[in-house]
């Protein structure tokens, strides 16, 4: 961190951080020095390293690959390692909270269990159609199904979309944009043999049909994916299956 310079005028910013032991909580204020090219994760790390070592938060790669460091910043979900302070600072103030729509373990650490449990509920797992004795199936990168899967495949599991989704907030059983987006990539995987099981999984009470297409997931996805389009694809496929399976 020694090569990162403080701003020439020694300017600081007022940062309000959510402190909680999982039961209730409160905001705590910190004065944090402003620096060039400073990210929100830099701010949280500065507080933990210089002001209060008991502050808990989660991060790993620091370069937008792992999806660990997402938090609410000024009320909006963001990947903090790739969010520059200068883009979100308002009236020299920042508010940092744990991700919305998830239980809090401590301070800025959200419990991701419900998020990943829903990936499993949505059958976001690969169902092999071949054995290891079979030859590897050649998949063309230009095949329409592969192109469709590629559009949705770069999800880093950060749960930003899940925190942004008002349907998740209103309906805790809703599987959420990430799990359904994952299910859609597998529906477009030619090697997958679990399509019918997956269509049943995404047609349950908390399934894809609860999406109101408000597109908060699209607006906030740091990788610029379009989970709403993936969910629309699932709605189309389940609607077709509704008639097909009655033949």
């Amino acid at each position: 961190m020694s090569n990162i310079r403080d701003m020439p005028n020694g300017q600081t910013m007022e940062v309000r951080v959510w402190r909680s032991d999982g039961e209730g909580g409160r905001f705590e204020g910190f004065d944090v020095p402003q620096r060039e090219s400073q990210t929100i994760l830099d701010v949280v790390s500065w507080i933990q390293q210089n002001a209060d070592s008991t502050l808990s938060y989660r991060f790993a790669c620091r370069v937008g690959m792992c999806g660990s460091c997402a938090m609410m910043v000024n009320g909006q979900p963001r990947w903090t390692c790739r969010t520059h302070v200068k883009k979100v600072l308002k009236n020299n103030r920042l508010t940092v909270e744990p991700l919305r729509n998830l239980p809090v373990i401590k301070d800025l650490v959200a419990d991701m269990d419900p998020f990943f449990d829903k990936w499993v509920k949505a059958e976001g797992v690969f169902h092999p159609s071949k054995t290891r004795a079979d030859a590897i199936e050649a998949i063309s990168s230009e095949h329409p199904m592969r192109v469709e899967a590629d559009r949705a495949i770069e999800c880093i599991n950060c749960a930003v979309c899940y925190a942004a989704c008002d349907v998740v907030e209103a309906n805790p059983d809703y599987l959420g944009p990430a799990a359904l987006n994952r299910a859609w990539t597998l529906m477009n995987d030619e090697r997958d043999a679990g399509h019918d099981v997956r269509l049943d999984a995404v047609s349950q009470k908390g399934g894809c049909h609860n999406c109101h297409s408000q597109q908060s997931c699209v607006r906030f996805c740091p990788n610029e994916l379009n989970p709403t389009a993936s969910i629309a694809g699932l709605k189309r496929e389940t609607a077709k299956s509704f008639f097909r399976r009655r033949d």
Partner: peptide, 12 residues
């Protein structure tokens, strides 16, 4: 709170 059956009923 919508499953496929209710969704289809509403769309149809």
């Amino acid at each position: 709170m919508l499953d496929l059956r209710l969704y289809m009923a509403q769309r149809i």
